[in-house]
């Protein structure tokens, strides 16, 4: 599904060039549940953003479902991003002026899903995540864990094939964190490929593979167990 070849990301700092990612080679198959770990400032978020097409690499190749992303134009990249990917953030990043229901519904609006279908899809997910009672509340009326539940619901509402999560439990205490991780496991079992960044060994155990990044390089890459998903094709 994802193939990175000699990927690099550098930024100018004054006269010098600083490499945030350097010579990253990586292949991730559909159905995997990958955990990225590493010290602060190692480049984990940057890697995730590049995979999620929120940032562009400065060198190397990025293939997604056999499409050479590094050669595609902005519009095409946006289309792939929109069709296949969902994002979960450490700081939840819900839209403050929209209710829970409206936040979850918004991705469907951008995908032109018709009103009736939209209602039933949102209703299903509210039900599944047990947040029906909260649907008319605004984000600042929810606890962190509840907000992150909404964040995950919003990320998967359009059934993405790839879920990218940057320290999704970083702001939560362990009980809430576990709830989110359980959800991830379920989603992964349903066939969603997941890449998460985390500092927590415990969270890492939910995954099938752990990649450790240090100073913009992949230090270790180990398969902890067989990929849970059987639906993956690539």
């Amino acid at each position: 599904m994802i193939k990175l070849i000699d990927l690099e990301k550098s930024v100018r700092t004054g006269l010098n060039r600083a490499w945030i990612l350097n010579q990253v080679n990586l292949e991730i198959k559909a159905g995997e549940f990958v955990t990225i770990m590493g010290p602060s400032g190692a480049g984990k978020t940057t890697l995730l953003n590049i995979i999620g097409m929120l940032e562009s690499p400065t060198g190397g190749e990025y293939h997604f479902l056999d499409e050479p992303v590094h050669r595609l134009n902005e519009r095409k990249r946006h289309d792939i991003h929109k069709q296949y990917m969902g994002f979960v953030f450490q700081a939840y990043h819900l839209i403050d002026d929209l209710t829970v229901y409206e936040n979850i519904e918004t991705p469907l609006l951008y995908r032109n899903v018709k009103g009736k279908d939209r209602k039933s899809i949102v209703a299903d997910i509210l039900d599944r995540f047990s947040i029906v009672a909260k649907k008319d509340l605004f984000p600042d009326q929810l606890s962190g864990g509840q907000q992150q539940l909404v964040g995950v619901a919003r990320a998967v509402i359009h059934k993405p094939r790839l879920l990218l999560a940057d320290e999704p439990t970083g702001n939560l205490h362990s009980k809430q964190g576990e709830e989110i991780m359980e959800l991830f496991r379920e989603l992964n079992e349903e066939g969603v490929t997941i890449i998460q960044v985390t500092h927590s060994e415990k969270n890492a155990e939910y995954g099938s593979r752990i990649i450790e990044i240090v100073d913009g390089n992949i230090r270790t890459d180990e398969q902890v167990r067989k990929s849970a998903s059987v639906y993956g094709t690539k």
Binding site: G52, L54, R75, H78, H81, K82, F87, H93, L94, I95, D96, D97, T106, P107, Y110, R111, R154, A155, H158
Partner: peptide, 16 residues
């Protein structure tokens, strides 16, 4: 300033 986050979020969740 307040709206920036919304703009960013909308872009991530599929807004062009």
């Amino acid at each position: 300033g307040r709206r920036l986050k919304e703009i960013g979020v909308r872009k991530v969740i599929g807004g062009s």
